[in-house]
Design a protein around this nucleic acid. Structure first.
Lengths: 343, 343
DNA sequence: GTGAAAGCGCTAACAA
DNA sequence: TTGTTAGCGCTTTCAC
């Protein structure tokens, strides 16, 4: 503490500027001078003051990541991927939780996160109707997910519709004909771009393609997407007496609950009922049976999102290029719950 | 962007200092003046430049949290608790992952996390032999866990020994006599303060108290503490032919694997084998059967750790009070896997 | 290739 | 109660 650039400059018998050049890897520094400066830095244990650098350069080297709740495995794994991607670019990440609280999310989007150069935001409560908020945003922002799609903002997201379709096609390929879906949103307004709505759409598309009838009784509401809600929806499904030989859970957390409820009821998975989830969280390896899922490309999402944000930060205020959209590649992961052998 | 304190001062017809006083809620500002300044702030959309404040005050208002890996639910939930505790004190949290990599952990402890006023560090690889590193640390640091206990540093941790003992006593109370433990560390050097060693100690103490014989065949190594390792250790235990009617998994992630392996083998839980874990992660609600566990007091740990760190930050360089130790209160959570009814 | 000097926006003495 | 002033440590013109 307390060693400044000036101290280094004095010891190395150079100016402030030269030390700065060395520290920032600028070219045009005589190798000998560079070595001398580096020796002085080591000797004094000099470490740049990042607040000062931030003040001068207008950059903090920190980005923000706002998610609803780290206790949901998907978001923890997303944070892991984002932190890793940021680290590769020598950035730090401030993590904020908006707690699935609409007002909190509005506050986040209006203000960003303190001390950051830009924000990666995965909202849960904001919808297309909040698009107007995005016009006010005057800091670099990249949205994760497509809930507010249509604004001026970059989005990085997953193939919700196509992934869901692939999940159901996988079940169809197993010969299942009565496929239930668990996790539909209780509020069925149209025009929303919630993951639940998009995935239900993919489910229906797959049924149509397969020539299977749609049956409203097979579409079960569950919210929020916690295991308990998946279990409750499945118990209702069982109690309703409607026949089914497969369940598509709209995410893996729900699927864990589905597996539990099926187990309680004595239904064997996958023999009686095949189950597939969505998100491919690591939990899926260790359920009994292990859980098939759609891998939404989490690492790609993180990598691309950080890259986009960095570009936005670099472009500065003036340059407002149009919004970009990136959808990561997905894949079907077949584990035991749909007859696979992987765990 | 670009609105400075000076702009506000000009508009409100006051000095810089007065604006600063208002922004920082200093007393001794005439109510009328305060109102005028606040109006100017709102009108211009002024927001303090935190880099400048940081440079001037030597504080960033950001603390660091370093954990091995957010994909492990325990650490995700810890991060959640720390972020919440920090937010209550108007602090942001930069999250870093050391990846259970010894060199990475050494780098973290030597340098702290950039842009932060202090660090909450939960190391996984550093041990008592690295105590010397702590003497070099010249920034506010609070360690989570007791792996490097004995240095000059504050620690906040859980009752590993006592909690483990309570877990086994709970099993004994159910009438179980052949209690296996899963998750011992492969390297049995003494003098280590790993959670595994401490919890095994608690296990043995409970056996002694209950007058049960120790049996080395019931102590199974498993590392790292992932579900797959718990499953593997349990399969070995089953294959060894040794009799057992209960398993104490040293954490919940292992326990998930234990449940899986028992299920595969057709052992009923809790009828044939009772199972209890440690950590009380939310996953435990949704396993089949739901998982009994030791709740280590995560929120208390986060709250106390942030508080201690803040005190350290406030004390400044000179004041080096002796190291403090806080152990959070724990409790036994009895769910279905030990005959309870909760989920 | 290197140096001198200005100033980023804020806070904290010290004055008034 | 409010104003003046001097930096915090760094980067960045602009000279040399």
């Amino acid at each position: 503490m307390g060693v400044t650039m000036r101290d280094v400059a004095l010891l190395a018998r150079v100016s402030n500027k030269t030390v700065s050049n060395v520290v920032n890897d600028h070219p045009h520094v005589h190798p000998e001078t560079r070595a001398r400066v580096q020796r002085a830095i080591a000797e004094l244990g000099y470490r740049p003051n990042l607040s000062a650098r931030g003040l001068r350069s207008g950059r903090t080297g920190v980005i923000g990541l706002a998610v609803p709740d780290l206790r949901q495995t998907y978001f923890a794994e997303l944070a892991d991927a984002v932190i890793a991607a940021a680290e590769r670019r020598h950035l730090s990440v401030i993590v904020g939780q908006a707690g699935a609280d609409r007002d909190h999310e509005i506050a986040v989007i209006e203000n960003g996160l303190k001390q950051t150069d830009g924000l990666l935001f995965s909202p849960e409560r904001l919808g297309t109707e909040d698009r107007g908020l995005l016009d006010q945003v005057e800091y670099p922002l990249v949205l994760l997910g497509e809930r507010i799609f249509g604004g001026p903002t970059d989005h990085v997201t997953m193939h919700n519709v196509e992934g869901a379709r692939a999940a159901v096609e996988h079940l169809v390929g197993l010969g299942r004909r009565r496929i239930a879906v668990v996790g539909a949103h209780p509020d069925r307004r149209t025009g929303q771009l919630r993951p639940s709505d998009l995935r239900v759409r993919g489910y229906r598309e797959a049924l149509v393609v397969a020539g299977l009838p749609e049956d409203e009784r097979l579409e079960r509401v569950a919210a929020p997407w916690h295991p308990a809600d998946g279990a409750a929806a499945t118990r209702e499904l069982l109690a309703s007496g409607v026949e089914f030989d497969a369940v598509f859970a709209l995410n893996d957390a729900l699927a864990v609950g589905v597996l539990r409820a099926l187990g309680e009821a004595g239904r064997r998975v996958p023999d009686d009922v095949a189950v597939i989830g969505f998100d491919n969280i690591s939990t899926g390896h260790f359920t009994l049976p292990s859980l098939s899922s759609i891998d939404p490309g989490r690492d790609e999402i993180a990598e691309v999102a950080v890259g986009m944000l960095l570009e936005r930060i670099g472009w500065g205020e003036g340059t407002s290029r149009g919004p970009r959209l990136h959808k990561a590649a997905f894949r079907v992961v077949a584990r035991e719950s749909t007859g696979g052998t992987d765990t």
